[in-house]
Design a protein around this nucleic acid. Structure first.
Length: 226
DNA sequence: ACCCAGGGTCATA
DNA sequence: TATGACCATGGG
């Protein structure tokens, strides 16, 4: 079976099992929440991000303007639960500066997708994955988000591009996935939800909905641990 | 005590 | 193109 069919099957099975509404970036999630969360979640778990976001709200710092007003070390204190506090405080302020320069967050998120992606990537602390999360979930553009979960899942299924770069993975998905915002949101959300549930906690789960998609033989064992 | 976590950046071969 | 060190905290 070719890769387009296989990836489509992954989408069908996982989106049927995992609801986008149990995902922290649902369609109704405010854009600012998505943007700040996307930066804070780098190399940390979502639970820690929630604590940091709660600290920001409690301190009245949950706005582009307030973020820029706050002294860096004070902001770092609020963000500490998410790890890398000094680094992430600076990144939040860089992003806030980008939004202000564009005339506000709404204005920033309304520029064309290619231009928006370039501006995001030019912002310190915003790399390709963070930029694509913002494009897909905050700006509702049909972007592809690649991440460690997607890569691990695809590799175990024997899918994916030969090059290991983010760009190669993103381009690969971009060709195979229908260019639909809601679909791409559901796909990414379902992959992550599935991997978080089964990857470490329940290796070799016999009820894995992707069991029949993996290569025969040894691959079947590997698939069971997806 | 140790290992890992939706990453980004900088240095190096 | 790709690998390694670094950032620093919370949870298993």
């Amino acid at each position: 079976m070719d890769e387009a069919v296989a990836l489509r099957a992954v989408y069908e099975r996982l989106s049927a099992r995992y609801d986008i509404d149990s995902w922290h970036w649902r369609p109704a999630t405010p854009a600012l929440d998505v943007c700040l969360g996307a930066i804070l979640v780098q190399h940390t778990t979502w639970g820690n991000v929630e604590k940091a976001l709660a600290n920001l709200r409690a301190a009245g710092a949950f706005s582009i303007e307030a973020l820029l007003r706050l002294p860096p070390d004070e902001l770092a204190g609020l963000v500490r639960p998410a790890g890398l506090p000094a680094t992430k405080a600076g990144r939040l302020q860089s992003f806030a500066g980008l939004a202000v320069a564009a005339g506000g967050l709404e204005a920033l998120l309304s520029v064309s997708s290619p231009e928006l992606r370039l501006r995001l990537l030019a912002t310190p602390g915003v790399g390709p994955e963070t930029a694509d999360v913002i494009l897909l979930y905050a700006a509702a553009r049909p972007a592809v988000v690649h991440d460690a979960y997607t890569e691990r899942l695809c590799r175990r299924l024997g899918l994916g591009p030969a090059p290991k770069s983010y760009a190669a993975w993103r381009d690969w998905q971009d060709v195979l996935l229908p260019c639909d915002v809601a679909l791409r949101q559901r796909f990414h959300a379902a992959v992550v939800l599935h991997c978080k549930e089964t990857c470490r906690a329940r290796p070799r789960c016999a009820a894995c909905p992707l069991l029949d998609l993996c290569p025969a033989g040894k691959g079947r064992m590997a698939a069971a641990s997806i």
